[in-house]
Design a protein around this nucleic acid. Sequence first.
RNA 1: GGCGGCGUAGCCAAGUGGUAAGGCAGAGGUCUGCAAAACCUCCAUCAUCGGUUCAACUCCGAUCGCCGCCUCCA
Length: 517
Amino acid sequence: MIRLFNSLTHQKEPFEPRDAGKAGIYCCGPTVYNLVHVGNARPYVTFAVLRSWLRHRRLETTLVTNITDVDDKIIAKANAEGRDATAIAEEYTAAYIADTDRLGIPRPDVEPRATETIPEIIDLVCQLIAGGHAYAAHGSVYFRVRSFAGYGKLSKQRIDELDEGVRVDNEPGKADPLDFAVWKAAKSGEPAWESPWGRGRPGWHIECSAMGLRYLGAGFDVHGGGRDLIFPHHENEIAQSEAAGLPFAKVWMHNGMIRSEGEKMAKSVGNIFLLREVLDRYEPAVVLMYFLTTHYRSPLEFSTGKLDEAKAAYARLRDALGDIDFRVANAAKAALLGECPDLTLRATAARLAFAERMDDDLNTAGAVGELFALVSETYRYLSEVDRGETPLDVEALRSVRRVLTESLGHLLIPAPSGAAEITPAGTVAGNEALACVTGDVALLPAARLAGDGRWDDIVLVYADRLGCADASYACLLRDHYRVEKQWSDADRLRDEMQEAGFEVRDTSQGTQVVRKS
RNA sequence: GGCGGCGUAGCCAAGUGGUAAGGCAGAGGUCUGCAAAACCUCCAUCAUCGGUUCAACUCCGAUCGCCGCCUCCA
């Protein structure tokens, strides 16, 4: 059973979809007037993972993430730069899609634009006016906050207390300072659409109500976004929708803020780090690890140190997967083959533990922890194998590998590429090469002299001749040196391999290489 | 001032009414031609003070500290 923390009730609740077997998620996307920063990426990742997990749990899931492409801030930016607001919106929409794409996770199922939802927005405003919840004034339309009894139920605010600190603005048509615009009369040069109240554009908030209801229908399952949107944005979304007689989201999920130097990362504070800059320096898997090793509701500090930690953690996973592959590929060299039911059981237990964590309010941090626990247990087992205390169980290792890669898949983290790069000396090609090498050792120095003395030249000669991967060949060559106790040659080759971007490890089954990340 | 959240080892971070996952770093050891990786051992009584309970880090209250929202904000 999946349980989700609902901001509306302030507790974890069993997830009960509106439609059996289906789930609909609406996540607040960006207003496109700037490049997305790390903070913006957190909900993008969080709700993509939620969708992934719900699908794994056999729910046909739809994720809708809006793009608000008409808004005061866009217009302000356009004015400041002397440009057209539409051009600004288009530019940053493209940048948003390009930047988030680099995370390498599937896009939302629907990414509707506010500007493509104008008729629905106008309809909604008409309904609000008809019901007495909104009123037109000077070409704008305002929502009458005090007309909606439930106002404040999400943010736990009471209207009378809000009244105290409300911003004094100079919108002459407002009947109550708490009221907010659902439709704004357009000034000349601003993007505008015909409406019953004259030319204008949507107010902030209304577009999300309209898009959520349009794509997911009334009473949809989950609405997500950053914690900072609870008030007023989400509160207003609820008011607008429900005052119009349309039940809104059942479960509200809010991710915690990303902080930088102890403060919320925000453009206004000036402590932002752009997503694209981070992705220039760290591979997507590391960035995902960074996000997912903290629970989505907790605040998360941003720093290169934290990214480096995520990188180190990911490297352990990568190495573990690589080591498993290496052992499996070199199983023939194992001293003792057999079954280890215990390891198989642990793999299964880890799979279940992972699922339990994920079911519990998307506890990705705990879930990743279970994966690492499995890695530790596997290494412990492998050590026992090396000491001859227990047999090597290839199938059990494959089970572990499957649990690891499938679980990472649920988190949208790609199986570490390093694993695939590890070239075991005992592959089919490698064994053929080994036969050739051992049978024709005399050729090696000649090949070495033929090139400029670097291992990859030799490798090229032999790889071409033997049809095997170069790294694999270098491993064989090094094994040869080591068997012959030609330490200086072996060490030099290792240096060269390291220069070429490989980590080199000696094992009882031969030289193992891991491509450095 | 109102509303909400957080405070777990050097750092990061899960977690349960019955004496604390995991990652990074550190110390010692094993393995290794050297190295790397790995393994083993060591490293917290959960901000403070009270209360409830047979038993609390986990429930309640207070205190201190930090953060978010109340204005644009993921």
